[in-house]
């Protein structure tokens, strides 16, 4: 195997691992957020609007971590 191939192999593997491992945490986080919001709506259906807005904000923060992983993966792959 040539050195270039080895580097390419490492890059592809690294990009995949970065995105895959980086998505675990945000996945759990978004799941917890969704579950919490559903419970809250179930207990207090009048507050649905307020809860949904806050849930969205929370999800965006959790999702941002996955986005960082994606940026890292993209940089590994394309730069």
């Amino acid at each position: 195997m040539a050195a270039g191939d080895l580097i390419e192999f490492g890059k592809l593997l690294g990009a995949g691992l970065a995105m895959g491992l980086g998505a675990i945490g945000p996945g759990i986080g978004i799941g917890l957020l969704g579950a919490g919001a559903m419970q809250a709506i179930g207990r207090n259906p009048e507050a649905t609007g307020q809860i949904q807005i806050n849930m969205m904000l929370g999800i965006v923060f959790a999702e941002a971590v996955a986005i960082y992983a994606l940026v890292a993966a993209l940089i590994i792959k394309f730069v």
């Binding site: 965006v60 941002a64 986005i67 960082y68 994606l70 940026v71 993209l74």
Partner: peptide
């Protein structure tokens, strides 16, 4: 960093 990468990452992705 978190401001810029969040926006860039989301839109680019």
């Amino acid at each position: 960093i978190s401001f810029s990468f969040r926006l860039f990452g989301n839109v680019f992705a």
